[in-house]
Amino acid sequence: MRTTTPAEDFVRGIWKENPVLIQMLGLCPALAVTNTLKNALAMSAATFFVLTCSSVLISSVKSLIPKEVRISSYILVIATFVTLADMLLQAYAPVQHKELGAFIALIVVNCMILGRQEAFSSRNTVYRSLLDAIGVGIGFTIALVMMGGFREILGIGTLFDIPLFGPNFEPWVVMVLPAGGFLMLGFIILGLGVFEQRKKSREAAAA
């Protein structure tokens, strides 16, 4: 069944079916480690790596995996790559590794990654799965960078540790606390809702 073109596979995950903002998958890392932009980027990079590698590997061996144990097999593949990502981060970015802590290991249980394997890589060619994984990975990165950027700017008044507002800025401390994660994602989603509604009413007016 070939209903989409490769270009569509790639673009789809970036915005229209954005894993975090539209499909609400992978919320745990999107909320937990996005208190600064740096942490958000490190998390996105690790997730991107795991997602792309698992998608490529699973789509290339999909005919060898028995249907009954496919979920367990996907989880095992994902867990292997997460272990790799964990070790790589520990070796090359020890500061970030310490900041993210247990949340690196928790990439294993990111529903977004398992979801892509079940919904896409297990029935499509390696090339298309790669495109799909990169698209979804970019979408995930966009969402995390939005969260991390806004929360760091409002909560600490800096971006990439560079102060933005001068000494008189009173930081909104709540934004870097857990509650701020929920509130920020809630406001982003409400904002998108307003945007969508405007678009719909404009289309209705045009038609």
Binding site: A179, G186, L190, G193
Partner: peptide, 22 residues
């Protein structure tokens, strides 16, 4: 309001709960 129904509202409620738990 119609746009706030669903996930957006749930997240804001969760945020307030989280604030309370702080």
């Amino acid at each position: 309001p119609a746009i706030a129904k669903g996930t957006g509202l749930t997240l804001i409620i969760a945020g307030s709960l989280s604030l309370a738990f702080m």
